[in-house]
């Protein structure tokens, strides 16, 4: 009896994450997918067909026939969407690379710091999260604007006589994304570096590597899982980022998050914005799944 109960409990524990995924990912995904196949309508909700049970089974079957891929065809016809996707991926990729460039040395420094100091450093990386994301992005406006803190400082030092135009350019978006997502890069790299056996770099030096060569041949390759995780954690949300380009970027900056927002709110075109969201998901999920397959195969080798 007790055995049966414990089996039930362990089942239940397994069910919880699956239930979570079902309710908060799979079902919303299908709702969005279903809307992306619908047509826009001046109604509430603003699309059709809308299912009801009044028409019976044949009514539902009839309405299923109204589904079409028109919205996806529409996305391919207007070059705006294509440009928005490409520009989002490019901006996200550049930002991810910059975040890596800044985040890796921070993570490395933390992992090499005295053990007693590490919790404090970790706390300092996480600390900005305790302030609202929106407030932090707004603060950057005050820093970057032509009469903002940065320009005041630079002209006071005498480096510039004309204020730098940073706000409302792509540079401001990079700054915003790098700043906001830095902890997501630092933490996985730190955790990969921290659990690395120190004697590995000593062994590399013993075998003739200078400290720099030891880093590139041993430390960096071994931290790659952390680098990949950090890059994904930054790249994925950055592609769909809306707040940062909206507040810091200029009107000419095209990002898919902004496009989606205007389709949804200004145009009230739920079906097209759903299609935009589905395509965005595909752009992100397919390469990641492909990459993970390669990774799994590489792990299998050498057995």
């Amino acid at each position: 009896m007790a055995k049966l109960a414990s089996a039930l409990v362990s089942r239940l524990v397994i069910i919880i994450p699956y239930a979570w995924l079902l309710f908060f990912f799979l079902i919303p995904f299908f709702i969005v997918f279903r809307i992306s196949l619908s047509q826009t309508a001046v109604a509430m909700p603003p699309y059709m067909p809308v299912f009801d049970l009044a028409g019976g089974l044949s009514g539902i079957m009839e309405k299923l026939g109204e589904f079409s891929l028109d919205n996806y065809v529409w996305l391919t016809e207007d070059v705006l969407y294509f440009n928005a996707y490409v520009s989002s991926v490019v901006i996200a990729a550049i930002s991810t690379f910059l975040t890596l460039l800044i985040g890796y040395p921070i993570a490395y420094g933390m992992a090499k710091a005295p053990r007693s100091l590490r919790p404090t450093l970790l706390m300092m990386v996480i600390l900005p999260f305790w302030t609202s994301f929106l407030i932090r992005v707004y603060a950057w406006i005050a820093i970057l604007k032509p009469e903002g803190l940065l320009n005041q400082f630079l002209s006071a030092v005498g480096l510039i006589d004309q204020p730098l135009i940073i706000l409302n350019t792509n540079a401001a978006i990079y700054i915003g994304i790098v700043y906001s997502y830095l902890p997501f890069m630092v933490l996985p790299i730190y955790s990969a570096l921290e659990k690395m056996d120190h004697s590995l770099t000593e062994a590399a030096q013993d075998l003739g590597c200078t400290p720099a060569a030891a880093f590139w041949r041993v430390t960096f390759p071994l931290s790659l899982p952390g680098v990949v995780a950090g890059c994904l954690l930054v790249f994925i949300p950055a592609v769909g980022e809306f707040v940062i380009p909206d507040l810091l970027g200029g009107s000419e900056t095209l990002m898919i998050g902004k496009t989606l927002w205007s389709e949804f709110n200004s145009n009230r075109d739920w079906p097209v914005s759903s299609a935009v969201a589905i395509i965005l998901l595909m752009i992100l999920v397919i390469p990641i799944v492909y990459f993970q397959n390669i990774q799994a195969k590489a792990d299998d080798e050498g057995r």
Binding site: D197, L200, A203, Q205, G208, T210
Partner: peptide, 17 residues
């Protein structure tokens, strides 16, 4: 420095890459 010494070491933990 260690990388210029004509000695090699076998580590207790083996330190295999």
């Amino acid at each position: 420095p260690p990388y210029r010494r004509p000695v090699n070491m076998m580590f207790q933990s083996y330190a295999l890459f």
